[in-house]
Amino acid sequence: MIAQKIIQNKLPFIVLVTFLVGLHIFWEHYNGGVTTHHLLAREDLPGISNWWGLLSIPLLSWILISLSKWLHNKNPTTYGLSQITKGFIGGLVFGILISLLWEFRLENILQYAIWSPIILAFFIRIYLPGNLLGFILGLTYTFGGILPIAIGLVLITVSFLVWTIFRKGIPFVFQKINQKN
């Protein structure tokens, strides 16, 4: 299983991610310069260079793989290897979809698609580290090494709040109300 190999030996995966980010930056450097992404896509706001991806993406990969391993070891039935793999692939596909929508300037679809993880959070746990890693890697080619992390953290945080409040909090409140009656 893919997740088991990555969790047990994360160094080859992190080296692969570092190589791919480095290859992308090398290509950008010799084809017009390394891209700088500006906040909110506005030139008057501060920019973040893709060079930061050489540090941020491998570091984040190490952190999220370690967190996935910890969660799996803590509770393998709830956070199984197949769930890690499915979450990673789902996040990767969603990140690539968002990147393609941005690249092809389909903002009318993008504005709705970006909310889909929050809607899915009502039904499944989107906030897991494997999902976040796949999502960030899917966005890295288009948005560099920092903006995907910021976007991913916002979506993961909101998804966690939705899951916690609606899947755990509301039933808890109703249970307490029924106990008083």
Rank of each mutant, 00 (worst) to 15 (best):
G80N: 14
F122P: 09
I170Y: 08
P58K: 00
V21G: 03
L155V: 06
W52I: 07
T36Q: 14
F19E: 06
I96N: 00
L153K: 05
L71I: 09
F135R: 01
G91I: 08
F88V: 08
H29N: 13
I177W: 11
Q8T: 09
F135V: 08
G145K: 01
H24N: 05
Y141D: 06
I126W: 02
I151A: 09
I146D: 03
A3M: 11
G152K: 04
L64I: 03
S49R: 12
S99K: 04
K5L: 15
P58R: 01
S116K: 07
L139I: 12
F19D: 04
S116E: 10
H24A: 15
I6S: 00
I136T: 10
G87D: 03
L100I: 08
K5H: 13
F88A: 05
E107S: 14
I156Y: 05
Y30Q: 09
F122L: 15
Q4V: 10
G169L: 10
R105W: 14
I7M: 10
K86F: 04
L132I: 09
I65W: 02
F13R: 09
V162W: 01
F160S: 08
S56L: 07
Q179K: 11
Q83M: 12
I109C: 06
L106S: 15
P171Y: 06
R125V: 12
V154M: 13
